[in-house]
């Protein structure tokens, strides 16, 4: 990712990319809410939302492929299913089988969407919780419920790498 040098030159393009992404997602949700009735208002609202959203986002948009996103969603759904069942079982088990611990994980992902996705999904995998990030945003502190929980963190990282087509 040697894009840092031409960051400023590409910045306008990136802003436009963000705005288009946010705009189309908002418009989709509007159609879900209202159908095509009063679409003019939806276009208007989505445009304002995209403008403000673009002001709020930071970093560059990362390209992703739709079919990979679908596969990632499947992986995520399966893992969160396992996670929910696992923690429910532990909570209801009479002897409360938990061995809480903290572990540090150095992320090899670039900042922006990949890291954000990683940090936010860790909490929904079986037995892991993203507890803290250091100031550089690379070292993720993970709280685990049982010793084997850390496996899913590395698995998640490789999935995110694959989703955004990054070099491992």
């Amino acid at each position: 990712m040697a894009r840092n040098s031409d960051m400023n030159a590409a910045s306008r393009h990136q802003r436009l990319g963000w705005a288009l992404q946010i705009f189309s997602i908002l418009l989709l949700i509007w159609v879900l809410l209202n159908g095509f009735y009063q679409l003019w208002a939806g276009l208007f609202a989505a445009a304002i939302g995209a403008g403000i959203g673009t002001w709020l986002v930071s970093g560059q948009p990362h390209p992703w492929k739709p079919h990979r996103l679908l596969a990632f969603a499947g992986f995520f759904l399966w893992e969160s299913l396992k996670g929910g069942i696992d923690v429910a079982w532990r909570a209801l088990h009479p002897s409360l089988p938990v061995e809480p611990f903290f572990a540090r994980h150095r992320m090899s992902l670039p900042p922006g969407q990949p890291r954000t996705l990683m940090v936010s999904t860790v909490s929904l995998l079986p037995g892991t919780l993203s507890a803290d990030l250091d100031d550089t945003g690379t070292i993720l502190e993970v709280h685990g419920l049982m010793p084997e929980a850390m496996d899913s963190v590395t698995r998640l990282e490789s999935w995110v790498t694959w989703l955004f087509s990054l070099d491992p």
């Binding site: 299913l81 929910g84 696992d86 923690v87 909570a91 079986p126 037995g127 419920l145």
Partner: peptide, 12 residues
């Protein structure tokens, strides 16, 4: 540990 219970079980 309580946060584990809240995030995962409630989301399922």
């Amino acid at each position: 540990s309580r946060l584990h219970a809240l995030t995962k079980a409630d989301n399922l």
